[in-house]
Simulated assay, not measured.
Amino acid sequence: MLAVRNRVRVSADFSRTVRSGARSGRRNVVLYAVETGEQPSRFGFIVAKTVGNAVTRNLVKRRLREAAAQSLALNPTGLDIVVRALPASASASWAELSADYRNAFSTCTAKLSQRHARQGG
């Protein structure tokens, strides 16, 4: 379970992350990330009805929250992450979903590092 301080809860924060963040897509998820300085890392999830019925969507959300909790241990500060579940995530196993999440996460953090290096900072 993610603590309240580690959740993206405001619509404006979701929009800012999706619009201006680094993006990485995989078969099951699309992940957006933006740097936030020294603030605690926060995670938000978008699981639309196209993923499946309520039971399926909640299962996907629980799995994605667990993957986010694991990455929070590695990056406790400095990131806002929004994870959009794609329809294929409904039939994905935990191993497939977590691998897609980890790969997308590492790609986004690499893109953010490149941006940071280009800006001289």
Rank of each mutant, 00 (worst) to 15 (best):
R16L: 05
R102D: 04
Y101V: 06
R5H: 15
S20D: 05
S11V: 02
S89K: 11
R84V: 09
G78R: 00
T56W: 07
E38R: 12
H116A: 09
G37S: 03
T36D: 13
V83S: 07
R42Y: 00
E96H: 09
T36P: 13
R7L: 13
V4A: 08
G78P: 09
A88Q: 15
S106T: 07
R57S: 03
Q119K: 02
V47W: 03
N6V: 09
A88D: 14
S93W: 05
A54V: 08
V4M: 13
Q119D: 04
V34P: 02
V51L: 00
C108R: 00
A104D: 07
L2S: 06
D80P: 03
A54W: 10
V55Q: 08
F43S: 10
E66A: 13
G25H: 02
G120Y: 15
V83W: 09
S89F: 10
N28H: 14
A68T: 00
R42A: 09
R118L: 10
R102F: 00
A48K: 04
K49A: 12
A73K: 14
R63W: 15
R65L: 04
A33P: 09
G21W: 05
I46R: 08
E38K: 12
E35T: 02
A33R: 05
Q39W: 14
Y32F: 08
E38I: 07
R102I: 04
T17F: 03
G52V: 03
L59S: 13
S106P: 03
